[in-house]
Design a protein around this nucleic acid. Structure first.
Lengths: 151, 151
DNA sequence: CTGCATCCACATCGATACTG
DNA sequence: CAGTATCGATGTGGATGCAG
């Protein structure tokens, strides 16, 4: 290990192909100079449940490490640190260290992060709105499957 | 195994806590009747790279299994079948079987699926728009890290 | 042509222990 | 308080082979 980059949040997806179509469909050029699709980068943050939670919590205002940890609840120290590092790396969150004793580190959303958070809110809204329909569909599907298995 | 539900695309996220804040922040009530956050369900589809790709491709029009497979390129048979099943279960895609020989199966986006696809497009647009900034931020971060390690 | 079952490599996550 | 390092359990995805 050369301890360079975290790179833990990619994994299997790293082998993913183009997705360039997404960008094209959206009216933009890919730019896969290094083989990584720009859209995938962002979408991967969404797939990461913790990133979403952390961003939305930071949207309520700056917070310190353990405050964030308590507020979210259920996130391990490891995952929080990892998530925050990723967000900082992507320029979505800022990290400010106050050289006091004990040391205090404050995290906050950057403008970019807030912009992203707004999209998350819209997405959450859509999800909440259509969730009943999705639930119902799932139930129908599962029941149908069960019947097939049964007879 | 009782062969009831696919349930393969959840895994680690299944243990995820609330995220109820997301819904609340969006102005909706949670509804974690069975411990599953409604927003998480949808967001998980986003984290799944293949779901996104498949949805966007289906948005261009209905398609058959192998046509889809070729169009996307790089997706394994297993993942495509799995992804399509999930989409069908959630009511985002429809599956129509033509009892011909050989059998033909056509997949298409439902209204719900198209609605979702529109959101994906917006997200892709945001990603493409801010991708340069994110790239730059990452480079800065990585360089800084490298320096730290070096000295 | 569609799609499921099995096997296998690998990555992730959480818990724990330790440093500054 | 704010992290990093390591370890073990679990889950995911790809390849292959077979069935309807």
């Amino acid at each position: 290990m050369d301890g360079r980059m975290p790179m833990e949040g990619r994994g299997p997806l790293a082998a993913t192909p183009t997705l360039a179509e997404d960008v094209v469909a959206a009216g933009y050029q890919p730019d896969t100079e290094d083989g990584v699709c720009p859209v995938r980068d962002v979408l991967d943050r969404l797939g990461d449940a913790w990133s979403v939670l952390v961003i939305r919590h930071l949207d309520l205002g700056p917070a310190r490490f353990n405050a964030l940890r308590r507020a979210i609840g259920g996130i391990s120290q490891r995952m929080l640190a990892q998530t925050l590092r990723k967000l900082e790396r992507d320029g979505l969150a800022s990290r400010t260290v106050f050289p006091t004793t004990p040391p205090q580190v404050e995290y906050a959303l950057t403008d970019l992060g807030q912009s992203f958070s707004a999209h998350l809110a819209r997405l959450a809204q859509w999800a909440a709105l259509h969730q009943p329909a999705i639930r119902a569909s799932r139930r129908r599907y599962d029941v149908a499957q069960g019947d097939d298995k049964e007879r």
